[in-house]
Amino acid sequence: MSVSVQREAFDVGNEIAALTGNKFDIGAVASFVGLVRNMNVEHGEAAKVSAMTLEHYPGMTEAALEEIVTEAHVRWKSLAIRVIHRYGRLEPGDAIVLVIVASAHRGDAFAACEFIMDYLKTRAPFWKKEEGNGAEPARWVDARDDDLTAAARWEKRE
C-alpha cells in the first residue's frame, strides 16, 4: 500500500504494472482516475473552467490518505493499493487523482476503489480554486452534499 501527494503527473499503466508485478495471487485490478473538467456544473448555467489550483495541508493530507487506505485494506481483502493525489495548478484534461486496488476477485477491488474515493472526497484536506474565462476572479469550489451522502453510505454497512 502506498500513498503519494505530488505536483507531477502520473502514468496509470506504469503504476498498475508496479503494483501488480510479481504478485501472482492478484486476479482483479480496479482503478479510478479523476480529471479536471472544463466546466463547473454546480454554477447554474455551466461555468467555464480554464484551470484550477489545488491547495492541501502537508502532513495531514498524507496521514488522512494513509488512514483511508488502511481502512479499505481491512474492510476488503485487498492485496495492493496505490493512491496518488496531485496539487498545484492543473488544466482541463489533466489527471488529479488515481486510485488502484488489486485483489483476488473483482468485487473487493471495485468496492474498495469506490470507498477510497468517497472517503477521500470528504476527509482528505484538499481545496480547489477554479479560474474561469478571466473576466472574474478565481473562485473556491464549494463542498457538495452529494459527496457527504456518498461517504455516508459506507458507514451504514458497519
Partner: peptide, 25 residues
Amino acid sequence: QRMVGPQAAVVDGDEVAFFPPVTGG
C-alpha cells in the same frame, strides 16, 4: 492533523488548523 469537534482539548505544543470543507478528488 486529525479532524476534531469543538470539545477537543488543546494543550501546549499542539498544532491546530481551521479550514473550509474539503473539495479534493
